[in-house]
Nucleic acid binder design. Structure first.
Length: 429
DNA sequence: CTTCATGATTTTTC
DNA sequence: GAAAAATCATGAAG
């Protein structure tokens, strides 16, 4: 303990002083004259080494000390140093400096990208948000899944960091331990700083390979989580009945132009507790499916037509609009593409029915009724299963090409003589 | 299990 | 870039 570690350095001349603690046979060794005696010496030493574990600690320490203080020791030490320098170190010195592992870099990059290893908090949610954004849907409705994803990710993150810290700590502890050991050993055998450095780097390499395993499994966990999350995105949940009704109401009351404006979409989204994107999806699906098979939607159309009519009636009696979101396009303000048709019809309905015009808002509602009325009326010819949209008619501005836009004028429009309330009666098939 | 309805995504079209 | 069309995938009903 009192001695400084004797790191390897080459001395040339060493003064040797006899030491009292040495065994007798070494003490007198002035170049042993007979081989037997030398063998005997070596045998003794070996014996001592072999039995060293049987000795008590104090005894062993005493012997160690005796060896350390042997008069021949510095000389032998130097010789060892020289030999070692010439062989081992020069050989091993060449194979240092390995390039950074590309796989490790990849893992690091991925962990960083996923927000596992990056800057504190927020990284994870950013990645989740990116994932959600990539799906196209806004994050409002899948926030449950989103937060689930975030929670799991932060769990992974926490585990990762805990483990990493543990490894680092273990690595440091082990390194310190080994260095102490080496320092201790440097008293009895030659150890260069380079060698210590090398040892440390070996330890670090070992530990970093463990770290790599950790990183790899973390990456895997994130991938699994992510794929599960992405799968979950696709999980379809039916909208609740109320939402569907609101959407259908809007759709059938704006059948001539079922393209809600952004504001209308927002309003619908709010009402239905879904996202605007979902509203857009719904209308996209609805339009295409309605157009593809109008017959199938007949009953539904009638139902909503009736409902809208009732709503409109109520609204006109109160002089205010019902709960349908405003739409800039289907109101009788002209300007939009199919207004030429429905606008004309609107006027004719007004004149035919003799309804009193109660202002723009009511006009919009009447317009809605007209849409549904026209739809219902034109179905009176009946339809068969084989009937396609083209064979039928061009309801609500659906033209022969199947589009809502630039619809041709309807071939014949039966004047709606009945009141809106009785609309549903003529399509009982 | 099969079928159909339906929300979501992807590809095509304008 | 928005809408149409095609397609995918799941949920519910039978």
């Amino acid at each position: 303990m009192d001695e400084q570690p004797r790191l390897m350095h080459s001395h040339t001349g060493v003064g040797m002083a006899g030491h009292p603690g040495l065994p007798q046979h070494m003490q007198e060794g002035t170049g042993g004259t007979d081989g037997d005696g030398r063998k005997q010496d070596i045998g003794d030493i070996l014996q001592q080494i072999m039995t060293i574990t049987d000795q008590s600690l104090d005894e062993a320490q005493a012997r160690k000390h005796a060896l350390n203080c042997h008069r021949m020791k510095p000389a032998l030490f130097n010789v060892l140093c020289e030999i070692k320098e010439k062989t081992v170190l020069s050989i091993r010195g060449a194979q240092e400096e390995e390039p950074p592992d590309p796989q490790l870099m990849r893992l690091d990059n991925m962990l960083l990208a996923e927000g596992v290893s990056g800057p504190e908090k927020g990284g994870g949610s950013a990645a989740a948000a990116a994932a959600a954004a990539a799906s196209g849907g806004a994050g409002a409705d899948n926030s449950a899944e989103h937060s689930d994803y975030r929670a799991k990710l932060s769990q992974i993150r926490q585990i990762y960091h805990t483990e990493l810290e543990k490894y680092e700590q273990a690595c440091n502890e082990f390194t310190t331990h080994v260095m102490n050991l080496l320092r201790e050993q440097s008293r009895t055998r030659p150890i260069s700083p380079k060698e210590i450095e090398r040892m440390v780097s070996i330890i670090h390499r070992k530990f970093s390979s463990i770290q790599m395993q950790l990183k790899q499994s973390t990456c895997e966990a994130v991938m699994i989580l992510r794929s599960r999350f992405l799968d979950a995105r696709r999980k379809r949940r039916n909208f609740n009945k109320q939402a569907t009704e609101i959407l259908n109401e809007y759709f059938y009351s704006h059948l001539s132009n079922p393209y809600p404006s952004e504001e209308a979409k927002e309003e619908l989204a709010k009402k239905c507790a879904i996202t605007v994107a979902q509203v857009s999806n719904w209308f996209g699906n609805k339009r295409i499916r309605y157009k593809k098979n109008i017959g199938k939607f007949q009953e539904e159309a009638n139902m909503y037509a009736a409902r809208t009519a009732v709503n409109a009636a109520n609204a006109s009696s109160h002089g205010s609009q019902a709960n349908s979101p405003s739409t800039p396009n289907s109101a009788g303000s002209g300007g939009s593409f199919n207004m030429s048709n429905s606008g004309d019809l609107f006027m004719s309905v007004q004149s035919l029915n003799g309804d009193s015009y109660q202002g723009a808002q009511v006009g919009a509602n009447v317009q809605s009724q007209v849409d549904t009325l026209r739809h219902v009326i034109s179905q009176t010819g009946g339809y068969s299963e084989g009937l396609t949209a083209n064979q039928m008619y061009s309801p609500q501005g659906i033209n022969a090409n199947g589009g809502w836009q630039d619809a041709p004028t309807p071939s014949s429009v039966t004047s709606p003589t009945e009141g809106p309330g009785s609309v549903h009666s003529d399509t009982s098939n």
